[in-house]
């Protein structure tokens, strides 16, 4: 049924109320394993965008600027803050990579059943930990 035309709507400064899909957290969806995977995927992406990408670009910049700025950057990265960031970044890269591959597989329409979503989720977590452990082992 069409709403009667309201000329005031054209003049209104308020945005039109449109239906939104319910927010993932809250009363609409049960919190479950897949919720955690989704949030982790986003959070790892935000970490990579906000921390690793700027830091890696800064690292490259100091490399281009000369030996002294680069030595200062390397000294920071060898300190405990730099090391902690590097370990977290390796975890974020590993997780975002594995969860991202899972998304690419979903984009082809495969592995969409409920049990497959559970099993591929656990597979992504195990693969993440394996890649992370391998990276830290090589670094030590």
């Amino acid at each position: 049924m069409a709403r009667p035309f309201d000329p005031g709507m054209l003049m209104s400064s308020k945005p039109k109320q449109r239906p939104l899909s319910p927010y993932m957290l809250g009363p609409y969806y049960r919190f479950e394993f897949q919720t955690l995977m989704s949030i982790g995927f986003r959070m790892s992406g935000v970490f990579l965008a906000m921390i690793l990408a700027p830091l890696a670009c800064l690292w490259m910049l100091t490399l281009g600027l000369g030996p002294e700025p680069f030595a200062a950057m390397q000294a920071f990265m060898s300190g405990w803050i730099g090391t902690a960031i590097a370990w977290l970044a390796a975890l974020a890269v590993s997780f975002h990579l594995c969860a991202g591959i899972r998304h690419l597989v979903w984009d082809t329409g495969r592995f969409f059943s409920k049990p497959q979503i559970q099993s591929t989720g656990w597979l992504a977590i195990v693969a993440t930990l394996a890649i992370w452990a391998l990276t830290l082992w090589c670094a030590s």
Binding site: A71, S94, G100
Partner: peptide
């Protein structure tokens, strides 16, 4: 898809270049 192998290179490069001089 391109980022899949490049992520592997990134981790390897990070390990290789840790503590490297200029």
């Amino acid at each position: 898809v391109l980022l899949i192998p490049l992520c592997g290179w990134l981790l390897w490069a990070g390990v290789t270049l840790a503590g490297a001089d200029h």
